[in-house]
């Protein structure tokens, strides 16, 4: 049998055992994946009824980085589903790497568009964009209301520290580990240290909530995807993060992900969550998000430069870093040097 045939056979057997139904896989196609895991679109009949599914799998050869495991991600998505968050419903988890070569889980397929440029531009999604600010506010309020207590594996600020202070220290540690001398980010981190707003009560945070990781259909937000960076943190971190210029996909004047102005969204979030939001705090976190993403770009370039992962795409990310550095400086100017 070929590798593809073994994949189909083992997945069929797994789904049949989990569902106690007769399973036939009628179609399987790879979806865009990353360096450490991949995704498969699967059509399968369960006792003759067609189900559209997605398999998210760790790749066997790659070391798992600091992101969450598939089992953790499955648990979080199940909790989010139970809390009324729109997610692709998680169905089955398999932590045994012998079945498909790496741990995986199976979830429902959600129809829609995730690619950022398409979300901000497609004429067919104009109604969806009008509805999105309210949808995003509601979904984030529900995410921030999830009780993180059962999830001991979630990263959280160290005792006696704050999310902002931890983020500053971690970003400096990354620069030091890369042996990068970057005065723009050094200045931004020094400024951040001296201007961090008072922390909010810690909440569950999705960690990567932005256009590009949200599945959009004609009516609006169909599902929140990519839960692997979930953590316990400051909820304003997420409100600022999704406004970062790089997540506006070329529509820079619309601060909320290139689809709308920020203020109506923040007001909708306040009325749904019942929490008063400091605009200055959200500004700060958007600024710090730029600094962190700019430094991540340098880390990505280092994967190429070190020879670990030769790639022109990773190399070019290094030169994108200054886009975030300049944006961070512009934000400092607006907030007050």
């Amino acid at each position: 049998m070929t590798a593809a045939q073994i994949f189909i056979q083992n997945l069929t057997d797994f789904l049949a055992a989990e569902s106690a139904q007769t399973v036939v896989i009628t179609d399987a196609a790879p979806l865009a994946g990353g360096a450490s895991r991949d995704m498969w679109r699967i059509d399968a009949t369960f006792d003759g009824t067609l189900n559209k599914l997605v398999v998210r799998r760790d790749l066997p050869t790659v070391m798992v980085e600091s992101a969450l495991t598939r089992a953790d991600e499955f648990a979080l998505m199940s909790a989010a589903d139970g809390a009324g968050v729109n997610v692709a419903r998680p169905r089955y988890l398999c932590a045994d790497p012998s079945v498909l070569g790496g741990a995986f889980f199976v979830m429902d397929h959600v129809d829609g568009v995730a690619i950022g440029r398409k979300v901000v531009q497609m004429p067919e999604l104009a109604d969806a964009r009008a509805a999105l600010p309210a949808h995003m506010a509601l979904q984030l309020a529900r995410i921030h209301a999830i009780d993180p207590t059962p999830f001991a594996f979630l990263p959280r600020p160290s005792i006696g520290s704050t999310p902002a202070y931890d983020a500053i220290q971690q970003t400096r540690a990354t620069l030091d580990a890369l042996a990068v001398q970057n005065p723009i980010f050094e200045f931004c981190l020094r400024w951040a240290e001296q201007h961090a707003p008072p922390p909010n009560a810690l909440t569950f945070c999705h960690g990567d909530f932005r256009i590009g990781n949200l599945i959009i259909d004609a009516r609006g937000l169909a599902a929140v995807a990519d839960w692997e960076f979930a953590h316990v943190g400051d909820p304003d971190e997420e409100l600022g993060y999704l406004c970062m210029r790089d997540w506006r996909f070329g529509v820079g004047r619309l601060r909320l992900g290139g689809i709308a102005h920020r203020e109506p969204f923040l007001q909708a979030y306040e009325s749904t969550s019942g929490r008063v939001v400091s605009r200055a705090s959200v500004d700060f976190w958007e600024f710090l998000g730029n600094v962190r993403w700019g430094v991540v770009c340098l880390s990505q370039a280092d994967r190429h430069l070190s020879g670990r992962d030769p790639s022109v795409e990773l190399a070019s990310l290094g030169r994108r870093s200054v886009e975030m550095g300049y944006e961070a400086l512009r934000m400092i100017e607006a907030m007050g040097v």
Binding site: P183, I184, F187, V322, G325, Y326, I332, E333, V337
Partner: peptide, 8 residues
């Protein structure tokens, strides 16, 4: 700040 802005 002025220097770094110009550098960026």
């Amino acid at each position: 700040f002025g220097h770094l802005t110009q550098t960026a």
